[in-house]
Amino acid sequence: MNQTSTGAVGRPAGPIGSAEPVLQAVGLVKRYGNVTALGGADLELYPGEILAVIGDNGAGKSSLIKALSGAIVPDAGEILVEGRPVRLPTPIAAREAGIETVHQSLAVSPSLDIATNLFLGRELRRPGVLGSVFRMLDRSRMRSEAARHLSELGIKTIQNPNQAVETLSGGQRQAVAVARAAAFGNRVVIMDEPTAALGVRESRAVLDLILRVRDSGLPVILISHNMPHVFEVADRVHVQRLGRRVATLDPSGCSMSDAVAVMTGALDPAELPAGALAPAYS
């Protein structure tokens, strides 16, 4: 495989030095009653990288991702897109800011077809009077564009964009959700546990898909429990613990067991060997 996925050599130069983060979270706080899901969480995503977010259950991964994708509103803190503060009160607002999310639940409608799912919420209308007065959808154009987006991502197992999503396998559904995010995301794609429900072969296909999205120029935030997957594709690894970021690791400079140790609190990030921390965060 020719992809420059893990090694430091071919990694995009983005994360280091002067590049401005595409997406940045500063001091996000979210409380549910007495439970603090986020206690001042930070995050930076740089152009052209895959940033993995790892953390134990209850570390605030989901809350962090939901805040970035507009699914919840943090109680405090700031989210910046290309340096500008934004408010993301709804998933639609996040989409308008260029942030597309592939939720763990996939957020696809099983009884609707692939093309309709791909364009859900941003349907295309027919040109002219049919579209403006009669509000008629341009189904043929949505179908052909859906087919194009799927083939651009190298998804070859899906032939017919008229197929209902419920007729697809788990991996194919994941591919539809990723294709939707990649087709419309113009700044960031967030993927929440994309391989959690998949078998070995399907996981492989989705990991390749993630790399292709990154290579097409879209930075990716990848939330995953699966350390081998994280270490295979991530350029940097954000470790979330007890509602905040404890470290950002360089996967080429540390081992999986180091990462797990930091994640569970068994190891202080300061005790990590030189080169284990990613350069952008120290």
């Binding site: 957020a107 409608s109 859900l120």
Partner: peptide, 21 residues
């Protein structure tokens, strides 16, 4: 129409439809 597709999507899986915009 868009409205009709959204009616189906809402009935199919309300949370999925919401997250999809």
């Amino acid at each position: 129409t868009r409205w009709g597709r959204h009616v189906y999507a809402t009935g199919d899986d309300k949370e999925a439809a919401r997250l999809a915009g």
